[in-house]
Design a protein around this nucleic acid. Structure first.
Length: 289
DNA sequence: ACACTATCCTGCAGGC
DNA sequence: TGCCTGCAGGATAGTG
């Protein structure tokens, strides 16, 4: 599920509860998610104070007071829930763990942060904070799409002589870090670009971005920003940390709209679904060229 | 260098 | 009602 807008929504929900708060203990309800959890996971986190909670691409990074950082990835179905544990009260209503609640952080404030992940494609790692930038998971990551690093000149340089489709190129986390299947489809629609276009064909021989490519960075930023305002997209698993749904799925122009009418005014196209690199692509063949 | 596939895992929708 | 198939927001390893 979680692409940049969902991960950032989660970060904004977690930050008030976690920032400058101590972790009392960590309840580890399984030994592994996608990978085995780090050795002594609970012990290494217990007693630490969370100094910062950042996002890089689709990763959440909680910097601890002991110099280690907890790096978390939500995979396809990961979510966090924040609630308050009230000991003594409501004794008759024991707070049961929900299915797929794998990790619970008990904070000194009485708040609990519960990580739920049905498919367990998510993972958590502990990395010494000074090594984050050189760690294999981060060293090669591409630009943040909402930063000014993402502009037409950057894309021209990134796409030059690339024979892969623009759809696949935008999904490549080593070029742009944080886009996923939904927002790539939506951004290509905004930019009126066919997902089948060859990335390198959008760059002139001199290395300058074509006019079509110039539309893409603003389209990407616009889609991501609107999704952020909506709290992300909830297809099945994504929740804000208070349990609320995101609602950007109601604003999709192409994603999951196969067979429906194109929403661009004066376009009479029908949204198509094709398969690219093993993933569904949704687009309007009439107005995306 | 590139494209495609299978893989990890669970849940759900659709067809019969 | 149930069984089966395919598909899902990600990312990697292996193949040709």
């Amino acid at each position: 599920m979680p692409e940049l807008p969902e991960v950032e929504t989660v970060r904004r929900g977690l930050a008030p509860a976690m920032m400058n708060v101590q972790i009392d203990r960590v309840e580890q309800r399984r030994l592994d998610l996608r990978f085995p959890l780090p050795p002594n996971f609970s012990a290494r986190l217990s007693g630490q104070t969370i100094r910062d909670l950042r996002r890089r691409a689709k990763y959440l990074i909680a910097e601890m007071s002991n110099g280690e950082s907890l790096v978390m990835h939500l995979g396809m179905s990961g979510s966090f829930r924040v609630d308050t544990h009230k000991p003594g009260l409501f004794h008759h209503r024991r707070q049961h763990a929900a299915a797929h609640d794998h990790i619970v952080f008990h904070l000194s404030t009485g708040m609990r942060i519960t990580y739920n992940d049905p498919r367990r494609f998510g993972f958590m790692m502990l990395i010494p904070t000074p090594e984050l930038n050189t760690h294999p998971y981060f060293a090669k990551l591409g630009v943040e799409p909402l930063s000014k690093d993402l502009d037409a000149n950057f894309l021209a340089q990134a796409f030059q002589s690339k024979k892969t489709s623009i759809k696949s190129a935008l999904l490549d986390q080593y070029l742009i870090a944080g886009l996923g299947n939904i927002y790539v489809c939506e951004a290509l629609f905004e930019a009126r670009l066919s997902p089948l276009a060859v990335a390198g064909d959008l760059v002139s021989i001199t290395g300058a971005p074509s006019k079509k490519l110039m539309c893409l960075p603003p389209a990407i930023k616009d889609v991501l920003q609107r999704a952020l305002l909506a709290g992300g997209s909830s297809l099945r698993d994504h929740r804000q940390t208070n349990g609320a749904l995101g609602y950007f799925q109601h604003h999709f122009k192409v994603y999951d709209r196969e067979g429906s009418a194109c929403r661009r005014s004066a376009c009479s196209g029908i949204i198509s679904r094709i398969r690219q690199a093993g993933r569904s692509t949704f687009y309007c063949p009439r107005c995306q060229k």
